[in-house]
Design a protein around this nucleic acid. Structure first.
Lengths: 194, 194
DNA sequence: GTTAAAACGGAATATTCGTTCCTGAATTTA
DNA sequence: TAAATTCAGGAACGAATATTCCGTTTTAAC
């Protein structure tokens, strides 16, 4: 009957994500997508409807594969300090990777589009809110274990770490060397200790 | 000879800045500008050449009037803690003002345009670099006075504060209430103390 | 008052961009 | 073998957008 799809939708979404991540939504033209995704214009529109839908799907895949595993670790959290460090590391790895300073896809998207695109704004808000919540519960756990300071309420500390992470996702754009990263992470970690 | 300009170029730039600040570069159309600047399309192009030049001029005016006074205070810095707090306050006032969460014009611009617009990237980089330098020298001063901790080098602390400020300029976009602000500022200030 | 420069509103233009459509070829299953 | 589906590539369309052009009005110097 019918011919089967020759490309992997998941892989195409991954490429689209990297393009949007690097250049943003508006600066990525339909032609850019055709040139880089490896599928034809017709397949692109047949499969993903339009540019905006493609962007939303890419953002959702980013959340599912890159955010959720971090904020919802499979085996629970044993070493809370290591977990927070892992959080910082994941930002670092994303930011300093192959393509110099891409920053964070969620933040980039929110900054560019939130004021004029409520759908994107809602997705970004949800991601950020869940991230802050995850940080908060881990910090509470650390406080109970006596590993983190109790001089400040867990919510304040969570907000502080969350804010530092957001900072890194942007600061990288201006100064993306490892030393800078390590400096900031060390100060943050020292703030958490009793 | 010539008719006098009926509008104040400075004021027009200010309005353009607020528009670009709120909606970003791409989402602000030429029609938006005509509708909101209060001058005609022809005057707009006669005076500011084109949209991109207008944006650059707005960004430069932003730097001159809103950044430079903060990082280059007239009367020197006597109270270093108050100065750092003032830094945080200026971010807060900008971010939480009349128009909900605009964030920071420089960071918004950098995030949206830096990867595809080297001129904007250079301006943003310069602003950010100077800001970090200003922070660093004030923190050194605070260390000499014994007001700030010397357990960590001034550059690390400066990077830390710089990063926290950048964070706030973005975090506001997701959660813009005063409590959040104060929580984060207090944790940052406590980190600086001996 | 005349004249040259500047500003204005609005129509007109040019270009970019997202999207659709078309053709021919390839592939799969009934 | 035939029908259905997919793919690539490109042409074509329509809408949006940045920019230019034009005729008119206003101002200031001569």
């Amino acid at each position: 009957m019918a011919r089967t799809k020759e490309f992997d939708e998941h892989e195409i979404l991954d490429r689209a994500m990297n393009l949007f991540w690097l250049k943003g939504y508006n600066a990525t033209s339909a032609q850019d997508l055709v040139d880089n995704l490896g599928i034809s214009r017709s397949s692109l529109y047949d499969t993903f409807v339009d540019k905006h839908s493609l962007f939303v799907k890419a953002l959702q895949q980013y959340r599912k594969e890159r955010i959720d595993p971090v904020i919802n670790p499979q085996n629970g959290v044993e070493d809370v300090e290591a977990y927070i460090r892992f959080f910082f590391e994941s930002v670092k790895n994303e930011a300093i990777g192959e393509n110099s300073a891409k920053g964070c896809f969620v933040i980039n998207s929110a900054v560019e589009l939130a004021p004029v695109d409520s759908e994107i704004a809602a997705i970004a808000n949800s991601i950020m809110h869940d991230t802050e919540k995850a940080l908060c519960s881990v910090i509470e756990l650390g406080q109970e274990k006596g590993i983190f300071t109790t001089k400040l309420p867990s919510r304040s500390l969570a907000r502080f770490v969350f804010n530092s992470l957001n900072g890194l996702r942007v600061t990288v754009k201006f100064d993306a060397d490892k030393e800078m990263f390590e400096d900031i992470v060390e100060v943050c970690m020292s703030t958490l200790r009793p």
